[in-house]
Design a protein around this nucleic acid. Structure first.
Lengths: 242, 242
DNA sequence: CCTCTAGCTTGATCTAGATCAAGCAGGCGA
DNA sequence: TCGCCTGCTTGATCTAGATCAAGCTAGAGG
């Protein structure tokens, strides 16, 4: 244990969170997903790749609803160890906190769009609160799954599970099993370090696991981000879940 | 990895979930916590120690709101490895699922009381839904914390963190620091195996960590369930969080 | 075209925690 | 009172994954 050679900046308590220029693109409202009374609407915003939306310890003034793209939520230990605690995809909600400040940091993995709600507005509007909460249930389920991964799975099982997350409609509840095309081309959009911090491993172990999958002929990898899963069922069996 | 010598029963898909006799004690309503219109009220129920409330795969018909006691939520891998994914205390909500069946199993750790809501009722009543969802935020925060523990902490840090959870008002957000009595008597109410499955360790490693804490004079242990924390600040520093 | 750099891979070695194997303590029924 | 059983502790050994240490590769900039 005591992983992480890479040192991350210490948690910057309370300071400007947006390290990306936010031009006039605020309030590009009229998005497809939301349709609420004007006073309940949030601002739709665009964010570049690797933009920090907020940091652990910042005032938790805003709640985010991701329209498209991907965001990672992470926490740092004082000695620099990092754990990515959640990956947010389209529809996902984040920035909700039980305390007055954010309990984790949020960073975009790719270009993303999100509806940004004022926390106070969400707390007043039961309609909005309901919609956001409904999605939290899905995320809760995913968190439980991730706890199993972190607590009980081997390195190869973790990486296999990670790859399977990117294969739509397979491996989870109601998986149809092998039918038609049993291969799928996955775009990871995370560095090996980010994957390692998500899976509770080191960068070297992640790399070795990918190499092992390649050696076994289960995936083919080119350009690092592109993973061609050649046999979905075979990688699914390696996840340890079934 | 590949822990767990103890084998747990394979997931019993769809079968009577209550393995504890449920006598006439249903609907002991009029509990202190809830005050809703009659049609929105749930039944308040009592459960003995080590009672399964539901199993992974059962129809997710009910949502539970714990009044007092303690419940653990766990998931099993097909080969018998177990991970306790969440510990629920008074006020906690569980049994919410994004899919039609429960995604984990729930078992009481001690004698407990809970308000049992019909899922359909919760989905109709915005007042009730709001109240339950509000508590999920707290639990979300705790899950993130637990992901850090499972992904990045050493065995000693995990056990120290676990013990600190039982010390009220210390170690978390807004901890007042050392003042007055710096000791506290903790009642664990979990076996070493349950603790191990919660912390992603083996029973032996948990045992060794407790012994190490005792050897360092940080805790005193008698009757296994009783842990006297002699120096709260010292064990807090061992959690890795600060 | 070459060089630089960031991110990735691979090999060698080390170690925290798993596994294996006794032994201990306390509650309980006979 | 005596076994017996369940849960806990402790020691010896093993191993998955961390750590340390080179390379490798592809894109960027000159």
């Amino acid at each position: 244990m005591k992983a992480q050679t890479v040192q991350y900046a210490a948690i910057p308590q309370a300071q400007p969170s947006f390290d990306c220029p936010q031009p006039a693109s605020r309030a590009v409202r009229g998005g497809s997903v939301v349709s609420l009374r004007p006073e309940e609407e949030g601002h739709q915003q665009r964010f570049g790749q690797h933009v920090h939306l907020f940091c652990e310890g910042d005032d938790a003034k805003r709640i985010y609803e991701l329209i498209n793209g991907a965001v990672m939520l992470y926490k740092l230990l004082p000695d620099g160890r990092r754990q990515v605690v959640e990956l947010i995809g389209p529809g996902g909600v984040f920035g909700i906190s039980a305390i007055p400040v954010y309990e984790c940091s949020a960073e975009t993995l790719v270009f993303s769009q999100a509806v940004v709600h004022e926390r106070a507005v969400v707390e007043r509007s039961s309609e909005l609160f309901r919609r956001l909460s409904a999605h939290l249930q899905t995320q809760f389920c995913a968190m439980h799954e991730h706890a199993v991964l972190l607590g009980r799975k081997t390195a190869l099982e973790r990486v296999a599970s990670f790859v399977m997350h990117y294969v739509p409609g397979r491996g989870g509840y109601g998986c149809p099993g092998p039918r038609g095309d049993n291969s799928f081309n996955v775009k990871l959009s995370m560095t090996r370090q980010e994957i390692a911090d998500y899976l509770g491993l080191t960068i070297e172990t992640v790399s070795r696991a990918f190499s092992e999958l390649r050696r076994r002929g289960i995936v083919a990898i080119d350009r690092q981000e592109q993973v061609l899963v050649k046999d979905i069922c075979r990688i699914c069996k390696l996840t340890g879940t079934r």
